[in-house]
């Protein structure tokens, strides 16, 4: 174990090269619905218990199944109304379990990025070969079922190893959603030297973190989304920012909660200068236009500060 995996260098938020998003937009907004499959009876993992209660954990399993049976369609219709294409954080096995959901998202030209095989299979304890096999399996099945190889990765249940980023970049991945260190895309260092970046995905705006961990009221969650947007929108005038709304169809789509997301989306899409995009689109635009100057700026600031870039 190491004190820091050195995935990125310190890069202060001030005086960075200015980002301008397509069409002169100052903020890139993306919605990332997690479409998870949790197994009722997963194999034990030595480092993390998939379910708090003994088998069968009816409460935990069934509320997540609710997301796919009831919640997904609701959230999708809501995003349709605002012309938002989701960027799906996908448990790849859902391609086999619920292809109907995949087809509905594909029809809308949504993005699919990898979220492992099942959200009850963790990276913890896997050998490097096993983790590579898991990453490739997920990418292959998503490509097979959607026609496009995923560009992004959110490790299953946010479980990582020291080599997760390296392995995903080696498998052809372009961006990670696993790092919460910034409000703009940043380069991420991988051992193969690939052009690999982090796209802001927000833990703070994540509905499950808000509703389950922080236990906020639905309308307060809507207010937090608006506040988050307001500040990133204002700062985006200096240099383009990224706002992500990570959702779970078993949280946001409950009848007592959907209005909160609806009001926030109406507010956000009612502004000029907002680029409603997918994770892949943001990553590709950043890589094509700003990656090189970001790397140069980081290096210059590290040298100016007397830090030897790793």
């Amino acid at each position: 174990m190491q004190p820091d995996l050195k995935l990125y260098d310190y890069w202060p938020y001030r005086d960075r090269p200015r980002i301008v998003w397509p069409g002169g937009a100052r903020i890139a907004c993306w919605v990332a619905p997690n479409i998870d499959f949790y197994e009722l009876d997963p194999p034990a993992n030595p480092y993390r218990k998939p379910w708090p209660r003994p088998y069968p954990d009816v409460s935990g399993y069934s509320v997540r199944d609710y997301g796919n049976r009831v919640g997904h369609e609701r959230q999708m219709r809501l995003l349709d109304r605002f012309g938002i294409r989701g960027s799906v954080s996908l448990s790849a096995a859902l391609c086999e379990h619920h292809p109907e959901i995949i087809a509905a998202c594909a029809e809308r030209d949504w993005e699919f990025f990898s979220h492992g095989i099942y959200n009850t299979r963790y990276t913890y304890g896997l050998s490097e070969e096993q983790e590579r096999a898991m990453i490739l399996d997920a990418m292959d099945s998503i490509e097979k079922h959607t026609g496009r190889r995923p560009a992004g990765y959110l490790a299953p249940a946010l479980s990582h190893s020291e080599h997760t980023m390296d392995l995903f970049a080696e498998a052809g991945g372009v961006y990670t959603c696993d790092l919460f260190h910034d409000d703009q895309p940043t380069p991420v260092r991988v051992r193969g030297g690939q052009r690999f970046i982090s796209i802001p995905y927000s833990l703070e705006m994540n509905d499950t973190i808000a509703y389950v961990v922080n236990r906020v009221e639905p309308r307060r969650y809507g207010g937090m989304l608006r506040d988050n947007f307001d500040r990133l929108y204002a700062e985006g005038e200096t240099s383009g920012t990224v706002m992500c709304i990570p959702t779970h169809n078993y949280q946001v789509s409950c009848p007592h909660r959907l209005a909160a997301l609806e009001q926030a989306l109406a507010y956000i899409t009612g502004h000029d200068g907002v680029w409603v995009a997918t994770g892949r689109e943001i990553a590709e635009y950043f890589l094509a236009n700003y990656y090189d100057c970001a790397v140069a700026d980081i290096l210059r600031k590290q040298e100016a500060a007397g830090v030897n870039a790793a």
């Binding site: 199944d65 086999e96 379990h97 896997l126 096999a133 399996d137």
Partner: peptide, 12 residues
């Protein structure tokens, strides 16, 4: 950890 016995259409 890499075997998926119920990876098929429908529920597990």
């Amino acid at each position: 950890c890499l075997r998926y016995r119920h990876r098929r259409h429908g529920m597990d």
